[in-house]
Design a protein around this nucleic acid. Structure first.
Length: 563
RNA sequence: GGCCCCAUAGUCUAGCGGUCAGGACGCUGGGUUCUCAUCCCAGAAACCCGGGUUCGAUUCCCGGUGGGGUCACCA
């Protein structure tokens, strides 16, 4: 046994499998030609960034459209940042938006995984990382380093003063050639170590790298002895990523562009593993405008950075995803216009169309996309989604919706089968204000203040109009909406109302008001607002007795105010 | 500060040497409609700056400027 072999076993004694055995255990995948194996690797911090969701969507889409594999890998190697239930949150969230991984942890958590290339929690892959660590040490590519935090700080200070690259390199890499005995002695003293890469590069070296979406990049090579294994035994991202993506047979790495500058480290590790790295695509982050400048959406500063913000606001999953698809590939919009009713999953996204610059999140655009997505939902889907949202975020409205599900379903369905369909809802939170009048509790709360919205007619005329509608209620159910409106119009025209403002202008004294005013009396009295969905439909859903009561209430109010 | 990335209307973008610089959202005006939301029509609105290369640059090259990222035992 050589000294290096001894050292490797001293450092990583509980070796269960060799690198060669591992590589054999996770063989190349049998997939159709052109199939992508992609992966989404969030940390379980209890928070899903909208940019992460975009990355997840892109990874999922590429795998889905190529009949490949979409892997969820939980990157939980930093125990300080880990949040209780963080993994479950991610698994559930992906499932809820329909980006279900083909491989990864399943909701029950723990050791349960779906797929043969796991485990899919990095915290459960310790033996794998240590096998590679052992192999690196054995081959002299990595070494244990005992530098304390304080010593590191001193080095940093010195380097700052000398204006040289900061980090463990050159003469500062003191433990690079520690002898076997010295290591053994420190270990026996109970000193903790980190495993560092013996960087093959010098300060000033360059490295070429072909980014899948940015093309050739010329970067500084990594001259630092980067930490591979932390003193708690967990790997750093830099070490885990090349190992996991190799063993999981990932065929394209898609990640945020904040990783560009550390790519040279990963390239060194791939090279040390004797593995050709997969293509790597760096995507731009989602940003927001902060004063004059834009910056990446921040978890700490911006509520809209979190996926939960959009859920609370009541944007359906499909809207969020379609909007993100828009940001990822501008051809989506064209496709959507050509295929208004197809599910977004049928759109073929291309890595070649991805933008390189960060994009600003545009709530107005999201709303626009969302109105169309919602208009496409079936009545049952719509009702179920609204109820689910209200139960979580607006219990009072949920109670109203569920008091008479038939009624609330019918109310939400008004105009949705028209051509083109009614598109008044961008987010669920829009609904209580617009559709609340269907529910007694909400309507009661609108009176009597809403009567101020009544058109400025003579009170007697207002009462006359209300009585006309009250007395003709029964006939309403026998005609279509258009016929009913036609009848009302004819009546109003015959009773001193002008067709429109133009007609009245010619002889103002001749008219009591406009036909529109005549109808507005009804609208305000029944819906409590000057704006509402189709009145005929709304009244039929409310039912004669409710409408009659509302009309009586309005009559009483107008008489009271006049008298 | 070093290194890197990015740069077309307010926003998302198309463009890949010669275009009236195209589309979408938003905005403004008009039309349809019982109101609102739609839908239809019209309009305002952009190539960061300076040098090259070229007969000709939004496009190619260089240099600025601006913005962003990154320089950890975080990912």
């Amino acid at each position: 046994m050589t000294d290096r072999e001894t050292l490797a076993s001293l450092l990583f004694p509980q070796l269960t499998e060799t690198v060669a055995e591992l590589e054999a255990r996770y063989p190349a995948r049998a997939l159709p030609p052109g199939a992508f194996v992609t992966r989404f690797g969030p940390s379980p911090t209890g928070f899903i960034h909208i940019g992460s969701l975009m990355a997840a969507l892109l990874n999922w889409k590429l795998a889905q459209q190529s009949e490949g594999v979409f892997i969820l890998r939980i990157e939980d190697t930093d125990r300080r940042r880990e949040v209780e239930g963080g993994t479950a949150l991610i698994v559930r969230a992906l499932d809820a938006v329909g980006l279900t991984p083909s491989e990864g942890p399943i909701p029950s958590g723990g050791q349960d995984h779906r797929g043969a290339y796991g485990p899919y929690l990095q915290s459960e892959r310790q033996a794998i990382y240590h096998a590679y660590a052992h192999d690196f040490v054995r081959r002299g590519l990595a070494y244990p380093c005992f530098l304390s935090e304080q010593e590191l700080q001193e080095i940093r200070t010195e380097q700052q003063r000398e204006q040289v690259a900061i980090g463990v390199h050159g003469k500062w890499a003191r433990d690079r050639d520690l002898g076997l005995d010295a290591v053994r002695e420190r270990l026996e003293r109970g000193e903790r170590f980190v495993l560092r890469l013996r960087s093959p590069a010098e300060v000033g070296d360059r490295v070429e790298f072909d980014d899948r979406i940015r093309g050739p990049l010329n970067l500084s090579a990594n001259p630092l002895d980067t930490v591979l294994i932390k003193s708690d035994g967990f790997p750093t991202y830099h070490f885990a990523h090349p190992i996991d993506d190799t063993l999981m047979r990932v065929s394209v790495v898609i990640r945020g562009d904040e990783w560009i500058s550390t790519t040279p480290i990963h390239l060194q590790i791939f090279a040390a593993m004797n593995v050709t790295p997969p293509p790597i695509a760096h995507i731009a982050p989602v940003a927001k405008l902060d004063g004059e400048s834009r910056r990446k959406l921040s978890k700490r500063l911006d509520v809209e950075a979190s996926m939960s913000f959009y859920h609370e606001a009541g944007f359906p999953e499909g809207s969020i995803l379609e909007y993100l698809l828009n940001l990822l590939d501008s051809n989506f919009e064209k496709w959507r216009a050509e295929h208004p009713t197809l599910p977004y999953a049928q759109f073929e996204l291309s890595l070649d169309n991805l933008g390189r610059a960060s994009s600003l999140f545009d709530l107005a655009k999201l709303s626009n996309v969302s109105r169309d997505v919602i208009a496409r939902l079936s009545a049952d889907e719509l009702h179920a989604a609204v109820v689910a949202w209200a139960q979580a975020h607006d219990p009072r409205f949920a109670a109203a919706l569920l008091e008479d599900p038939q009624l609330s379903r019918a109310a939400l369905d008004i105009g949705r089968n028209d051509d083109p369909p009614r598109k008044d809802i961008a987010q669920w939170s829009d609904i209580p204000a617009r559709y609340g009048f269907f529910f007694r509790e909400y309507f009661d709360a609108m009176t009597p203040a809403c009567y101020a919205e009544l058109p400025a007619l003579d009170p007697d005329e207002t009462v006359h109009a209300l009585e006309y509608f009250r007395d003709n209620l029964a006939a309403m159910s026998e005609v279509t909406s258009a016929e009913w409106f036609g009848g009302v119009k004819t009546y109003a025209l015959a009773h001193g109302y002008a067709k429109n403002a133009g007609a009245r202008k010619k002889d103002p004294a001749a008219f009591k008001g406009l036909v529109g005013d005549f109808l507005m009396v009804l609208r305000v009295s029944v819906t409590g607002s000057r704006q509402s969905p189709d009145l005929h439909a709304a009244m039929r859903i409310l039912g004669d007795s409710v409408v009659r009561a509302r009309l009586e209430r309005a009559i009483e109010h107008v008489r009271g105010a006049a008298g």
